[in-house]
Structure formats: structure tokens, C-alpha cells
Simulated assay, not measured.
Amino acid sequence: MKHNGSDIAAPTLAIAYHSGFGHTATLAHAVAAGASEAGADVAVIAVDQMDDTDWDTLDAADGILFGSATYMGNVSAAFQSFAEQTGRRCVDGTWRDKVAAGFTNSGGKSGDKLNTLVSLSVFAAQHHMHWVSLGLGPGWNSSAGSEHDLNRLGFFLGAGAATDVDANSEEVHPSDVRTCRHLGWRVAHVTRQLNVGRSAIPAASNPGASSAPAH
């Protein structure tokens, strides 16, 4: 997407997520709220309910934040199905140099969520996207801390949430909601910075793209 003038101040972000029981959907909307607060135009897309317009939205966005519940230590089957549908875009470089970030939820405090965040970041790397970390230190890691700290579960690669498996979607922990809100805010700011830089400095050609490296 090209930018000029005031367009630079309003990055476009899409949140592509799958939620089995509503918990990850709550986080997705928290991410959207944080990004909107930072001045981004945001679209929220459930990847198991997509149509052609949603694919166009992802292709046009400056950045995509990926979210999935953690099931059996990895992304959900529905998210993986979405990921596998992006194969042609991966080959064609459709999402190359977009900004990316990720968030996930599981019932356990750990719940192997890190593996899901790694999977999301590798997925973004396969598309040659720029991954943005959570940008928060760990909360709730001292006697002065509490479960109400931001990043209470201590993730760095992305945002992690823990929700009781019998809780409804309104009972996601407030700290986890605020942590995801922060993630959206951070990604919007990083995307704006990248857009401003791109508007000021022409893209450099890759000298090694069309020839083998010298030995």
C-alpha cells in the first residue's frame, strides 16, 4: 500500500484470528481498540468466516496481527487451515514487508502458549513480514507484583492470556485484555514509524535478488 500526506498518520491494520469459545475474540477486539487509540484504521476478521472482501482487506493492510487459541500446544486447526490457504500469497510475496504480531489464549497459565506464538511468528517470517514483539517487561514476578500487572504471564514474543476453560467470553482476565490492548497500540505506532520511513527513503534494490552471491 502506498502512502502520502495524511495517509501516513493512519496505518491500516487487520486482525486475523480464530476463537473457539469467544476468549480469543475478546482479545482480538482489545487489540483492535488499542490500535484504534493509536490512530490506526482497523479491521477485525474471523479467519473461519472469511469472504473475498476479507482477503482483500488483509492484502491491502499495512500490518496483520494474528491471533489463535492454543489447542494441544499449537494454533487451532481453523487457524492452520487459514494459514495453509495463504500459500500462493507466500510464493507471490503479497504480504512481504507488512508488519506482523501475535496473541493467544489457553486455559493454563503456561498452556504451551509460547509454542503458538512461535508458530505465528514463523508463519509471518515465511511471508517475509516484520514481527513486532510485545514490548513489555514481565509482570507479577516479584512480591510487589500481582495478577493485575500488565503482561502478568511474562511473555515477550507476543501477548499471552489465560482464561478458565469454563469462563465465558466476558470473563477474560482484565490484565490480559489490557496487555492485548497494549499490543495493538504498539503495533500501530511501529507501523506508522515504518510508513514514515518508507515515505522518506526510497526502497533499496536487493543486489543479490537476481544473482548468486560471490564466493
Rank of each mutant, 00 (worst) to 15 (best):
I15A: 02
S19K: 06
L13N: 08
P174A: 05
S19G: 03
M1C: 02
G87H: 14
R198D: 12
T104N: 08
A100H: 10
P207A: 07
G154L: 05
A32Q: 11
C90R: 15
A33K: 08
T70R: 07
S205I: 10
M129G: 02
T24I: 08
G67R: 07
E170T: 11
G39E: 11
L120T: 08
S6F: 13
F21L: 09
S68W: 12
G87F: 13
H215L: 06
T191F: 04
V75G: 01
H18W: 12
N206Y: 13
R192P: 00
W185E: 07
H130C: 02
L114M: 12
E147K: 02
A9K: 10
L120M: 05
K2H: 13
A212D: 14
G34R: 02
G160P: 05
A40L: 01
G93W: 15
A83T: 11
D164S: 08
I8E: 14
T179H: 04
D48T: 04
R198E: 14
L120W: 14
P174C: 03
V172W: 08
G184Q: 07
E84N: 12
S169A: 07
F155K: 06
G107Q: 10
W55V: 02
A100V: 02
L134R: 07
R178V: 01
G137P: 00
D48V: 00
H3C: 01
P11W: 04
C90K: 15
F123H: 14
M1A: 06
A60T: 14
E84M: 06
C180W: 13
H130S: 06
F66C: 00
R96A: 01
G87Y: 15
Q193R: 09
E37V: 00
L194C: 06
V187D: 09
S110Q: 13
P207N: 11
H128F: 10
A203V: 14
K109Y: 15
I15E: 07
A14S: 09
V196M: 08
D112T: 09
S175P: 01
W185D: 09
A144S: 13
L13W: 09
G5A: 12
A204D: 14
D59Y: 12
G87W: 15
D62M: 00
G137Y: 13
L150S: 07
H182C: 00
R192Q: 12
Q49D: 13
A204Q: 14
L120R: 08
L153G: 04
G160V: 07
A200D: 15
A14M: 04
D52N: 12
T179K: 00
C180F: 12
W95Q: 04
T53E: 13
S119I: 02
L114A: 05
L13M: 02
G139L: 00
R96K: 08
G208V: 10
S175L: 03
A188R: 04
T104Y: 12
A30T: 08
N115Y: 15
A101E: 04
